[in-house]
Design a protein around this nucleic acid. Structure first.
Lengths: 239, 239
DNA sequence: CCCGATTATTGACGAAGCGTCAAGAAAATA
DNA sequence: TATTTTCTTGACGCTTCGTCAATAATCGGG
């Protein structure tokens, strides 16, 4: 009967989620080597072969985790982009989301780094790789959307030959670079960098000011905007 | 006799360099998994035990390679910082060096990423880790030095509460983030980012302009400065 | 409800690769 | 030359990945 078919398929689908749920902390705590196929099987009380029915190799699990991660970020970004305010404030909201994301879920951010290692990326399936690309595209698309709105609303005029994607790339590089350094460098304080997150926020705003994206940060009460973003968009996450 | 003693020690020292020389392409081409202790031994016609006399584990080889890499970069940065020009031009020279480095030796850049994986970093010795820290410190120190010169020469005034290290961190994050994205993301073009290196240069300059570091980029003939840097500092590397 | 066909599960197994260590070789020292 | 120290070797143990033939469960038609 149909119900039975669905029953089994549901069980399989359910299991896939459990595999990922069990894998994530292993990967988060010990990195690539902490993820152990035998231990996953053991924890789920299933044989290894069954795990391999879901994921062709260890790296497929990692990239699947990364996809979950990227979807989570996209969700935050989408909500941020819908913040009610002018274009610059909406961009600010996305920046806030990015920082929130890395602070709330540092291991998620870590997973995104891990799949970029050549020795891991190369073993993943084309199928999941294209999902990653799509996620990336969607994520950038959200930010580009805000930039385009800014342009069409007359808040921003890009220099000749400069595309919205270029501006986004600059900010993307800045933030992801900073978060990556923060996450992997335990001696930042010794290097004289005591408030890296604050520095990133300032650098980004200075860059946007440099592009003349109005209202300039000197004309904005940034703290008040942040407060509003916290309250209106990320009330659940900020407590 | 003394000569013989030196002889043997020289041989050992020589071998250590050969181990690294053989390891680098393996790591560059296939990443972490491409580096294979048995194959290293085989290529050097030496037993595995001997390799392990030099390096306690695979990860130690990787971090040793990373140290070589960092020293190479320090060399480029030092030369760049000595460029004869105003403070902003000297900073420009360092930026040029960073870009040159990642373009000339992309695999070197990759090694620096690899050691930052938790699962690798954790297996390295405290001794080499502190060397890495030192290299980082020296590298940042060079750049901070130029910023300090700019301040003392009256070219730059940092906002209240902003340290030279903070400015350097911002640029460091921007460039390393960008290079990392460029290296690991094969579909940048599809995302609408066609000239990422050019975007980075512009973003950084816009940031420095934002800090009011004189002379501002609009008052500088950047192309001419680059030409001079190429000719006067990196003639050997640029051909 | 039963029975062949299909699909899913299992865990022993092979392969690869890391790191060890006792035995033996080479070098240093006396 | 004899003895001690240091260096080298490669077989071995161990872990972990991924496979696959055998087995079990599910499905679908009669």
């Amino acid at each position: 009967m149909k119900c039975s078919l669905t029953q089994k398929q549901l069980e399989i689908h359910e299991r896939e989620k459990r595999i990922l749920a069990v894998s994530r902390p292993m990967l988060a705590e010990q990195g690539y080597h902490g993820l152990n196929m035998d231990r996953i099987a053991e924890k789920l009380q299933q044989s290894k072969g069954t795990i391999y029915n879901h994921f062709a190799c260890k790296e497929e699990i990692i990239i699947a985790l990364a996809i979950e991660t990227m979807e989570k970020r996209i969700d935050l970004f989408q909500r941020a982009a819908m913040f009610r305010g002018n274009s610059r404030e909406r961009f600010q909201a996305i920046g806030f989301a990015a920082e929130l994301f890395v602070k709330l879920y540092p291991h998620h951010f870590g997973v995104e780094q891990i799949i970029r290692s050549a020795s891991i990326w190369d073993k993943t399936s084309e199928k999941r790789r294209s999902v990653v690309k799509l996620c990336e595209h969607r994520c950038i698309g959200i930010v580009v959307g805000v930039v385009l709105d800014a342009i069409s609303q007359g808040d921003l005029e890009l220099p000749c030959g400069y595309k919205p994607e270029d501006l986004v790339f600059g900010v993307w590089a800045q933030t992801s670079g900073a978060y990556s350094i923060i996450a992997t460098n335990d001696s930042l304080h010794e290097l004289g960098i005591s408030e890296p997150f604050s520095v990133v926020r300032q650098s980004v705003n200075r860059q946007l000011d440099g592009f003349g994206w109005k209202p300039l940060s000197k004309d904005l009460d940034l703290d008040a905007v942040i407060k509003r973003i916290e309250k209106e968009v990320f009330a659940d996450e900020c407590r």
